Computed example of a mutant assay.
Amino acid sequence: MSWNSSAREDAQRAETVRLPYADRTEAGRVLAERLVPLGLEGAVVLALPRGGVPVGYEVARRLGSRLDVLVTRKIGYPPQPELGVGAIAEGGSPVFDGELLARLGLREDDLAATVAAERAELDRRVTAYRHGRALPEIAGRPVIVVDDGFATGGTARAAVRAMRERGPSRLVLAVPVGAAETVRALEAEVDEIVVPAAPWEFRAVGQWYRDFGQLTDDDVTAWLERAGHAAGGGAV
């Protein structure tokens, strides 16, 4: 199901999903069922760590697809790091929120040190999760980018732009829940966007889950190993 209806229809569709989700596993199963009708045979599922990995596991399991991670990092405003002014994904260039930078009186060059630090952490996580393996080859194949949800969508935007450069046959962004305004803003970035629930009143992704515990690097590795075992070693 892609995001292509009126605001009223969007609201009605959102009401068909029972929120909050129990946890990321339930959310992943709901999301997977929305992806099944799209005919994404041979797709690669790329989950954004950390929270997107258990969601991506359920999607990959249901579709019989390969699961891997696509590492992203938020670029924070230095005096207030929790305020994201951009994001970066492995294999891609930084993607900034130009309007926010202008309001803060910043230029992209002013964030060079922050970007360098986030690149270093991104590289560390790539090593921790994939142990030297490259991203799967996606040129000419469908790719599904999965997360547990998005509010502003900065990391999702960086992720799909990085993947677009690799030439997939079809680029799909899929999350169990996302802010309605952000869903509309991201629609032009992908071939399909699949979001079972898109509330207009949206503070944070965690408000839509009963269990939204923080995950560790070890948790991510465990989910990937589980996917590999389930696929006979072929999922990762």
Rank of each mutant, 00 (worst) to 15 (best):
L48E: 07
L48C: 14
P49R: 02
R50S: 07
R50W: 05
R50T: 09
G51R: 03
G51N: 05
G52S: 09
G52K: 05
G52M: 09
G52W: 06
P54E: 03
P54N: 00
P54R: 00
V55I: 03
G56T: 10
G56D: 06
G56P: 08
Y57N: 00
E58M: 00
E58R: 00
E58I: 00
V59S: 02
A60Q: 02
A60S: 07
A60G: 06
R61D: 05
R62Q: 04
R62D: 02
R62M: 00
L63M: 01
L63Y: 00
L63D: 06
L63R: 01
G64R: 00
G64N: 01
G64F: 00
G64I: 00
S65W: 00
R66F: 03
R66N: 06
L67F: 02
L67S: 08
D68L: 04
D68N: 09
V69T: 15
V69L: 06
L70R: 12
L70C: 11
V71N: 10
V71R: 07
K74H: 14
I75L: 15
G76H: 11
G76W: 11
Y77C: 13
Y77G: 13
Y77H: 15
P78C: 11
P78N: 10
P79E: 08
P79N: 06
P79M: 06
Q80H: 15
P81R: 09
L83F: 12
G84I: 10
G84N: 07
V85G: 11
V85W: 13
V85I: 14
G86L: 14
G86E: 13
G86M: 09
A87V: 10
A87Y: 11
I88Q: 04
I88M: 10
I88W: 09
G91H: 02
G91C: 00
G92Q: 02
S93M: 04
S93C: 03
P94A: 01
P94F: 03
V95R: 11
V95N: 11
V95M: 05
F96S: 14
F96E: 14
F96R: 10
D97K: 11
D97A: 15
D97M: 08
G98I: 11
G98M: 09
E99Q: 12
E99W: 08
E99V: 15
E99P: 08
L100R: 13
L100S: 12
R103L: 02
R103A: 08
L104H: 03
L104S: 03
G105V: 02
L106I: 02
L106C: 02
L106S: 03
E108Y: 01
D110S: 05
D110R: 03
L111M: 01
A113F: 00
A113C: 01
A113H: 02
T114R: 01
T114W: 01
T114K: 01
V115M: 02
V115Y: 01
A116H: 05
A117G: 07
A117K: 02
R119T: 05
R119W: 01
A120N: 08
E121M: 03
L122V: 11
L122D: 14
D123H: 09
R124W: 04
R124A: 15
R124Y: 12
R125W: 09
R125P: 11
V126S: 14
V126W: 07
T127F: 10
A128E: 15
A128S: 13
R130E: 12
R130C: 12
G132V: 06
G132Q: 05
G132R: 05
R133E: 15
A134W: 01
A134V: 02
A134D: 15
